[in-house]
Design a protein around this nucleic acid. Structure first.
Lengths: 191, 191
DNA sequence: TATTTCATTTGATCCATGTCAAATTTAATT
DNA sequence: AATTAAATTTGACATGGATCAAATGAAATA
């Protein structure tokens, strides 16, 4: 997939953009071809970039008392960024790491803000991206609030059946707010 | 506070609006004076309204296996709506209930969409509202993922110290994903 | 002010999930 | 293929928080 196709895909997913706006977005997105385990953002950095995943997947995680906690997983046709740093200009509490060899398009916050200022339709698109993110967070909150470990695992499998083939169980476990051992036992059909 | 002041306040909080847009928003917001325990939205309803709280507070809750689970609490100068119904046009899984006598301004989704279409600056404002919501959800997710009951309670007290004077403990407990009994024990200084 | 209803606390017990440690399986590297 | 390293499973045990039940306290209403 080339950049043109990516822009087209983004428009289809979220909201249509004028030809001029598409072109300008195109000129300002940078394609990246990166290897598994590459770290896009480190804790403490000011990250003003967002990444659209063409191929591959990534996770955002942070360290709590030295323990690695995944709190976001993103796959093809999704955006990932250090949400706090990107939106509030604070240093990132998160690392962002690729879990597979990936192809990404990188956009900078300043360009996005500029385009959102210049083009009403782009402002719309950003609103849609944020709204979609908010709705998936809403689901995540519901699934964490009063569901058992087993229910949470079933939930995520329903949303993304191939997740266990693509994401190590440790990361899935902490994403669900449970331990690796508990996840392993849940997955064992004898239990 | 009258409607003009409310609109002004909203502009200050999120993003400035042109005079014309402010006026149109004003014409389409309806002020409501409602009593404690009033139910704004019921499960199963298609709710296409959002409510801005001038005075008072409200909660969104749903029933899981007959149990009442609060998953949103809103106070003055915040919006509350049946997030799923409002954004996806599905029937609401939530109830929305007032926890105090409250003054609200009600806006309809169709008007909001219309204004967002017509005015770039209003589109911007909506984007800001959604972004802010998303960021507070992000915090909530972090606080639920790997924090103990005690830590979660400390977190919410730090954000809103007067919450225990305004919201019954049962609702706070389920909002934190813990039981009423556990919350009660946490609050007892002997523990 | 007495009575009823609702909210909160306290106690006793249980269980899902965490913790720590070791074994096993799978993948990466020489 | 052999060796090392990483990921996952399994076991034994501990514990935070749930559940159920009853007592107390506070607020609403007669």
């Amino acid at each position: 997939m080339n950049k043109e196709e990516v822009i087209k895909r983004i428009c289809e997913t979220y909201a249509p953009l004028s030809r001029a706006c598409q072109q300008e977005l195109l000129d300002n997105g940078m394609m990246l071809f990166l290897e598994k385990n590459h770290i896009l953002v480190r804790e403490g950095q000011h990250s003003d970039k967002t990444y659209y995943i063409i191929n591959g997947c990534a996770r955002a995680y942070y360290l709590k008392d030295g323990k690695d906690i995944t709190d976001w997983l993103a796959f093809e046709n999704e955006f990932i960024s250090s949400i706090i740093s990107f939106f509030t200009h604070q240093p990132s509490p998160h690392y962002i790491e690729l879990l597979e060899d990936s192809v990404l398009v990188e956009f900078s916050k300043s360009k996005i803000d500029e385009l959102a200022d210049k083009y009403h339709d782009f402002e719309r698109l950003i609103r849609m991206v944020v709204t979609k993110t908010m709705l998936s967070q809403q689901e995540k909150i519901a699934s964490m609030q009063f569901y058992s470990a087993k229910e949470k695992y079933a939930n995520i499998l329903a949303i993304r059946p191939d997740i266990t083939q693509r994401v190590p169980l440790t990361f899935i476990a902490s994403y669900l707010g449970i331990t690796l051992e508990t996840l392993s036992r849940i997955r064992n059909p004898r239990n």
